[in-house]
């Protein structure tokens, strides 16, 4: 992808020109949209769940699937270079997990003394 440019002085420049338009394929957006709506519907059925843990699993399970669908298909990450996977999913998840894990013993496990003002 190297294009030959010349300036006023007639000197040759070789400028790397990245392709601006996309190189990736297109999944069937209608299907994905439909799936997303169905998943939204499922996550609203939480009231039918017998136990709180099941509700949490259902709600976050659907949320993660929805997010994965959006990232992979709408944002076309599925077609992208591995570097983008690492930096946008891997690193972010690692950071957030580290953050959560490092703070966990200091908040849920500690009760504050709430005195009136």
């Amino acid at each position: 992808m190297y294009k030959k440019n010349t300036d006023e002085n007639g000197l040759g420049h070789e400028v790397p020109v990245p392709k601006e338009m996309d190189y990736h394929g297109h999944p069937n957006y209608n299907m994905i949209y439909l799936t997303l709506i169905v998943l939204l519907g499922i996550s609203l059925l939480g009231d039918l769940m017998p136990a709180k843990s099941l509700l949490i699993a259902l709600v976050f399970g659907t949320a993660i699937i929805k997010a994965a669908l959006v990232i992979r298909n709408f944002m076309h990450l599925k077609y992208e270079n591995l570097f983008l996977w690492i930096i946008s999913i891997g690193a972010v998840l690692f950071i957030l997990l580290a953050f959560f894990w490092g703070m966990y013993p200091d908040f849920p496990l500690v009760k504050l003394e709430l005195a009136p003002k």
């Binding site: 953050f99 703070m103 709430l114 009136p116």
Partner: peptide
């Protein structure tokens, strides 16, 4: 604000992270 359930230690974590 500890007296409303907030936690000063939370900021320390956020800051030093």
């Amino acid at each position: 604000d500890a007296y409303r359930g907030g936690d000063p230690v939370l900021f320390q974590h956020m800051f030093w992270f």
